[in-house]
Amino acid sequence: MIEKRKSWMSLLATSNQSDLLNLWEQKKIRVNYIWLRTPEIGSIMAQGRMGVTGDKFNIGEVTITRCSLKLNCGTIGHSYVQGRSKKKAEISALCDALMQTKMSKEINKNIIIPLEKIKKDNKHKILSKAEATKVDFFTLVRGESD
């Protein structure tokens, strides 16, 4: 369950805002909920490692919006999403909550799976374009006389 939840929350967090909004609006899902934490815009500090494997250092910050809400049935949804869209954070938290209810099949089919496909297609596009730029260098032997 935790692995699945990690996976959908990650997908929602990194989804393109307009993709998520479009999918959500298309389904016209209406649910009642109360805010536990209204959407809040902030940042996290991204870290790297010196020389790939060494000690940590700070690279810079990334904008993040988070919120938490509770459905009428008592299920709690959280979101931490990339960017500054409060709407994206709200829909993501709703999806997170609904994915834990009996509506999970519907949300999965209409939102999570389409988002997964978009993500997969984007990655496929990058990798296949990059592959087309793969180069085989060969070194020339200098014409040295002996």
Binding site: I41, G42, I44, M45, A46, Q47, R49, E61, V62
Partner: peptide, 13 residues
């Protein structure tokens, strides 16, 4: 901006 937290170190591999 409110700083929420620090990320895990990115895995560039």
């Amino acid at each position: 901006l409110t700083r929420f937290s620090y990320s895990k170190p990115v895995n560039t591999a």
